[in-house]
Write a protein that binds this DNA or RNA. Structure first.
Length: 228
DNA sequence: CTCCAGGATA
DNA sequence: TATCCCGGAG
């Protein structure tokens, strides 16, 4: 066997251990995050679209308004005028674009799956991901959030925090793409929905609390010293 | 002022 | 690659 190949395998093995240690440190420090906070799988999907580049607390206001009007359902949103929908989700920001995105998702759901959410979410993971990525307004992070937290299938969710934390611990290069980072986890961790669920939630909590873009609190971070 | 469970467009 | 979308909290 070539020497470079041997080194690749050793690096892979070391990084596996680091990813497990990373998880263990965070879980030990913070415990289970109980994601995704939603009452239904449909609510997860709506939340996943509304939370794009938006603080969750603002999404909660929008979800609450949809519930108050009793329109948090595929058929209601499918049939609702887009302007009316935009007004209801206003607190989430980007409300015109997000209203269009919710509508486009519902058209996708009705056109391809007869409005049957179970049928969509029951699709095998790789196919489901490709399908979701055809929806205008659903990018890789939103697709993986839907797969992991609504369909409960093991697709690792990557976000800005994931990127930053791995980069700061020298596990990925500065310019690593979404799919490279996703594969970095999925090639080294067991394909386990509960693990991916908790892992992403812990990374987000850590990113917010310690690994902020400016003024990170490295000295107090549970990941201090990980991978040198 | 910056930042936030991003994605589309030119 | 840069710009736009946008309210709300710190």
């Amino acid at each position: 066997m070539e020497k470079t190949r041997v080194l690749e395998i050793e690096t892979m093995s070391i990084n596996k251990q680091i990813l497990l240690e990373l998880y263990d440190r965070l879980f030990e420090a913070f415990g289970p995050r109980r994601w995704w906070p939603a009452e239904s799988r449909f609510e997860v999907i709506v939340g996943a679209i509304l939370t794009q580049n938006t603080a969750w607390r603002n999404v909660e206001k929008s979800i609450a308004q949809l519930k108050a009007k009793n329109v948090l359902s595929p058929e209601s949103i499918y049939n609702m005028p887009v302007k009316e929908l935009a007004a209801l989700i206003r607190p989430a920001g980007y409300y015109n674009i997000k209203a269009e995105r919710l509508k486009s998702f519902m058209r996708f759901l009705y056109n391809g799956y007869g409005g049957n959410l179970n049928r969509l979410l029951g699709t095998e993971m790789a196919s489901l991901r490709k399908e979701l990525l055809t929806v205008k307004g659903v990018g890789p992070e939103t697709a993986d959030s839907i797969i992991l937290y609504a369909a409960e299938q093991p697709s690792f969710v990557v976000d800005t925090y994931t990127n930053r934390i791995l980069y700061r611990h020298h596990l990925i290069p500065d310019d690593a793409s979404y799919d490279i980072i996703r594969d970095f986890f999925m090639d080294r961790l067991p394909q386990n929905t509960a693990l991916y669920n908790e892992y992403h939630a812990l990374l987000v909590y850590t990113g917010k609390t310690f690994c902020s873009k400016t003024k990170p609190k490295c000295l107090q971070c549970p990941l201090q010293g990980l991978n040198q």
